[in-house]
Write a protein that binds this DNA or RNA. Structure first.
Lengths: 131, 131
DNA sequence: CTCCAACCTGGAGCGCGCTCCAGGTCAAGC
DNA sequence: GCTTGACCTGGAGCGCGCTCCAGGTTGGAG
């Protein structure tokens, strides 16, 4: 059940082969196993990390911070508080990001509704907006 | 009421001076007025555009697409359908983005709650997760 | 009139996160 | 044993969106 070829790991994780190698190179994924010949073998644990990295990446965490998190996890049990804190801070930023996105989405919708109302309104009746 | 110095426009829009110049250079903001000596004077209309650009940027629209939108607007009334369509497509992408962000935020929260439950649970009682 | 902070230009540089490449190795199927 | 496609490495390159710089000009305050 564990031991995936690079292409399989790529397929399952949604990251490209190059990205998987890159993540290992910069120390996000550490010590990926190898065959005798030197080819990578990804474990279920690696896949779990990749799922996490996707979550963090999709929510806008910089790679440097993911690296830090991964390093803390490798450092052992005594770093759980710091890891917890790191994730909480990140979650707070994500919440802010969601609020901003919602706000700007509302603006966008308003702008769109302006285009949709325009044909029904007498020319010049609405305040001129940019665009 | 209209006619802002670059620094004032920067302050009001939240973009840096360099970014304002950059936006003009690449044709997002076209034909910004100048004093006799060549210094920029931003109008309320320019400010309106900047508000729009911030909205589009914050929702992840690439600059090339903003450029296209701005160009269409300059091309006149007969492009309203295309502009409307462009914004609608963008809005759809933003909705997808919001769904993804929410989903990944939920994962993140789950991960965090794992850290918060951990001290209460007997060692080995929970499935091992990466990180 | 002088000063100096704000402004101008063209163009180089940067930070991020990959992505691609050349040149070589590995390993599964025939 | 041979072929062939997947894989390896180190390092260069890229696309985006700015950001910074040098060297010069402008314009309002005193």
């Amino acid at each position: 059940m564990s031991g995936y070829a690079p292409s399989e790991a790529a397929r399952r994780s949604g990251f490209s082969l190059d990205t998987l190698r890159y993540y290992e190179k910069i120390g996000l994924l550490a010590d990926v196993e190898r065959t005798a010949g030197g080819q990578r073998v990804f474990t279920d644990d690696d896949l779990g990390w990749l799922v996490l990295f996707r979550c963090l990446r999709d929510t806008g965490m910089p790679i440097a911070q993911m690296r830090r998190y991964a390093q803390l996890a490798r450092d052992g049990e005594h770093t759980t508080d710091e890891r917890h804190e790191l994730l909480c801070h990140h979650a707070a930023r994500v919440e802010e990001q969601m609020r901003l996105l919602q706000r700007q989405y509302d603006h966008l919708r308003e702008k769109i509704s302006f285009y949709e109302r325009q044909p029904l309104v007498a020319p010049g009746a609405e305040a001129e907006q940019a665009g």
